[in-house]
Each structure stands twice: as C-alpha cells, then as structure tokens.
Design a protein around this nucleic acid. Structure first.
Length: 204
DNA sequence: AGGATGATCGTCT
DNA sequence: GACGATCATCCTC
C-alpha cells in the first residue's frame, strides 16, 4: 500500500466538527488522527471514544480547573493529555466553549499508516490488532505525551485531526474503568470493528 | 475468553 | 496516604 494513497485523505482539515461533547464523541468515530512526532508520521482512524460532558462527576473537570486539567477548559478541539496510573497517557479532544471543562477520551483506533514505527514504539511482542487498541496503547503507538497537552488539533502540528466517517453502525455502552456516574451510556464505538478495545456486543 | 494482580506516579486530602 | 478515564502478565475454565 502506497503512503501517498492516504495523503489526500488525512491532509484534509476537519470540516464542521461539533462542539457539544456527546455529538463530538460520535463525530470523532471514523476521523483520522495524524501524529508528526520526532519527525515520523503515523496515522490511525478513531473507532472508539468516551464523552465526559460538563457536570459529569467522572470528568477530571468536575472539581474545577487545576494545573493538570487546564487544557480541558480551553477552546474546543484542543488536546488534553494526562498520565494515568503512573504508566500510561490518555488523549482527549476538548469540547464545549472556552472556560467550560469537558472533553472526549479517544480509546482506540485502527492503524492506517506508519505501522512500522507503531510496532517499534509498542514493542515487538505486540499484535498489530493491539497497536492502538486501548487509550494508553494508542498514545504510545502514536508517540503522544505531555508535550501534546493543550495543542490545537485542527491545524498542522504534532497532532492533527482529519476528516472521516464511521463505517456501519455506531454502538454505545457504559464507560470503561470509572466508578462515578458509571451508569451513563457515554461510550461510542464502531460496532463491527475489530480494533475496538472494550465490549463490542452491547447496545443500543 | 475472562478474571485477578502488581506496577508506578502525579494529584489531592 | 489514597486513588485513578490503564496495561501486561499470570492464572483458571
């Protein structure tokens, strides 16, 4: 597969990405994420997200703006990156108006381009299916870390979101790994996609 | 395929 | 001193 075959697609800036958190979480399914880290390009297509809307007790923004979560209170469509469990980074896309803390966690993606650098970053023992399957794995494969925290995502840079649309049906379920507001169905994923990280058989 | 566990560290109480 | 929007590994079925 030729690299330039993908280029016209992922060089398109995203048109009309929603600002509202849940709408954004759905709209991000199918969008491509391009990373230009350390002079290397890697591209993956988002297949699973979770919404953390305003007033959500499970959101890092719930208790107000802090040093760590200040990116969540920025303009929409910026990166919010944080370290979790001391071992992994999580990548979010900010949502809602400036000053309102909210965002969308990107949980899994389908590797499209730069598979070799992703394998190198993830380790030789990693199956291709698992390169970006999980929030911490995705950031590792794409070289996303604290340097990306707060960066805009709709212009060329270390990270850029490109246009895309979901293939087939979008499923939803409760969010993974949270204890507060655990009943809310705010996780979205491409139903038939094998690169989704969590349960794929749930409804509606 | 699915459940339990330890690693590891910044942030908050 | 406790707690995560997790992962890799080890275990059992």
């Amino acid at each position: 597969m030729h690299a330039h075959a993908w280029k016209p697609e992922w060089e398109q800036p995203h048109s009309a990405l929603p600002v509202e958190t849940v709408a954004l979480a759905r709209a991000l399914i199918g969008c491509v994420l391009v990373s230009e880290t350390d002079g290397v390009t890697a591209v993956a297509r988002i297949v699973e997200t979770e919404a953390y809307p305003p007033g959500d007790p499970a959101s890092h923004a719930f208790k107000g703006e802090r040093l760590r979560n200040k990116a969540m209170f920025r303009e929409p469509h910026h990166a919010y990156v944080y370290l979790i469990y001391g071992t992994a980074f999580c990548f979010n896309v900010t949502s809602e108006a400036h000053g309102i803390g909210a965002g969308v966690l990107v949980r899994a993606a389908e590797p499209l381009y730069g598979l070799d650098i992703m394998r190198k970053r993830r380790g030789a023992a990693c199956r291709d299916r698992d390169l970006c399957r999980g929030p911490g794995r995705l950031t590792q494969a794409l070289g996303i870390d604290l340097r990306d925290d707060g960066l805009p995502l709709l212009r060329p840079g270390r990270l850029q979101l490109g246009d895309g649309s979901p293939a087939g049906e979008i499923g939803s379920s409760v969010r993974i790994g949270i204890t507060k507001a655990a009943e809310a169905s705010l996780r979205f994923y491409e139903r038939a996609n094998p690169y989704v990280s969590g349960p794929r058989a749930l409804s509606p």
